[in-house]
Amino acid sequence: MPNLVRRSCGAADGSADMIDIDNLVLSYPSSTKPALDHVSLSIPEGQLVALVGASGSGKTTLLKTINRLNDPQSGTISLDGEDVSAIPGPLLRRRIGYAFQGIGLFPHMSVAENIGITPQLLGWSKPDIAARVRELLALVDLPADFAARTPAMLSGGQQQRVGVARALAARPKIMLMDEPFGALDPLTRDALGQSYRALHERLGLTTIMVTHDVQEAVLLADRIVVMEAGRIVADGTPRELMSEKAEPRVMELMSVPMRQAERVQAILSGAAHV
């Protein structure tokens, strides 16, 4: 299975890896098991990587370590060739779009202020920010008059879309998205997933998207990384992970959408016979 777990090679051959993670180890003070256990991962520019794995496997921890919301005990991270530990945290984070798992909108700010916050921190002019907010609301398919609302006046799914818009606001080259579509209904989720994929391509973004949903991962991602207990246990294209050569455990995980589709099919055809 050499092609399933691709080790970091970016630094060695000088290729243009956008995100280069090398041998990260991180333990939270309160627990004995490391949340990240020697994690290495290289992602070339333009790739959309889906990070999947059971709850508690370390997906969120990995994202937060990339933009230095967490500090690892050892290991290095480079973004576009630059070691992140050399960049002041706030400046680094203004360059990276981050959509939080818990959405994390500021309840005392309007939707427009939420979306415009990073540009504001970067010193954009007011008209530029206003224009950007209008653009992003349209992009995430929210009516323009939502700009003046507060987050409390939105549904969970609408809040999540604002969260994605906020992450995109300062035109980052790297997007870290932690279950960004979790609170959406299947229809919107599918639509927003696809429109994000299109955006990702159009803007040439590099994205890591955490998701529980293997089907979503298969449909949207160029590459799927599977985590388990703080380690990367599989890494490849959707096709590779579903191939015969994959580890049985990984294959089982990857075949969930298939099996579900078959069951749905069976039920529907069974019902037709009644």
Partner: peptide, 16 residues
């Protein structure tokens, strides 16, 4: 806590 973490995440300094 989510709001405080988000503040950090969008690039605010501790003072901001």
């Amino acid at each position: 806590k989510a709001a405080v973490e988000a503040a950090k995440g969008v690039g605010m300094t501790p003072m901001q």
